[in-house]
Amino acid sequence: MLNTKEVEFNYDNQMFFKFQNIDLNSNENLLIIGDSGVGKTTLMHLLAGLLKSNSGSIKLFDKELNQMSSYQLDSFRKNNIGIVFQRPHFVNSLTVKENLQLAQYIANKNDNTRIESILKNLNIFDKSNKKTNQLSQGEKQRVSIALAIVNSPKLILADEPTSSLDDNNCSKVIKLLKKQATDFGAQLIVITHDSRLKKHFKKSIEL
C-alpha cells in the first residue's frame, strides 16, 4: 500500500535528507521513529503530499505522488489522508462541529450523523458547539483526531502525537488513535521521536 524508493529531499541546497525505503502492506500500522533533525516532519509532509521529493518515488495506494500536480495532491489528500498534527490547529472562528463540517465540505461530503458518531466515540460530543479555544489540551487533541478521521481516510498520519504527554496520557492517546483507526477502517502511520511508542507497534522503522 505504501512503497518508497530512494526518496531524497533538500531544502534550498542546505539540508539534505535521504530516506530509507519503506514498504507497508494493507492492514498494517507503522511507527517511524527518529531523533530530532533526521527529517521526520519532512518525511511526513512528503507522504502527505505537502512536499514533493527531489528524486525517488513515493507510491501510496498505487498512486505515484511525485507525478501529481499540486491540485491533484490536494484532491488526493482530502480523499485518502487524515493528518494529526503535533500541535492541534483549528479554524478559530468556528465551533468544534463547524470545524468538522468544514472538513466535510472541502471533501464534498455532508454527513452530520458521522460527525456525531465520531464526537461520541471520542467522548467530546458535549463540546460540539464550543469554540476550539475554549477546549482543554486533551479535548483539543481529540478534536484534532476527529478532524483527521471525519472524511473516512484510508491512512492516518500522526506527527509526534504524544511528545508532550506524560506516560499515562501517552499510552491513552496512542491507544485512542489505534482504536479510531481500527474503528473507522484506516491504517495508521505515526512519526515520532518518542520511544515509548515502540511497544504499541508491531512494525517500526528507525530513521
Partner: peptide, 10 residues
C-alpha cells in the same frame, strides 16, 4: 495551512 491539509485548494 490546516484547511489546505484538509484538502482545500489554493
Amino acid at each position: 495551512a490546516l484547511i489546505r491539509t484538509l484538502g482545500a485548494s489554493r
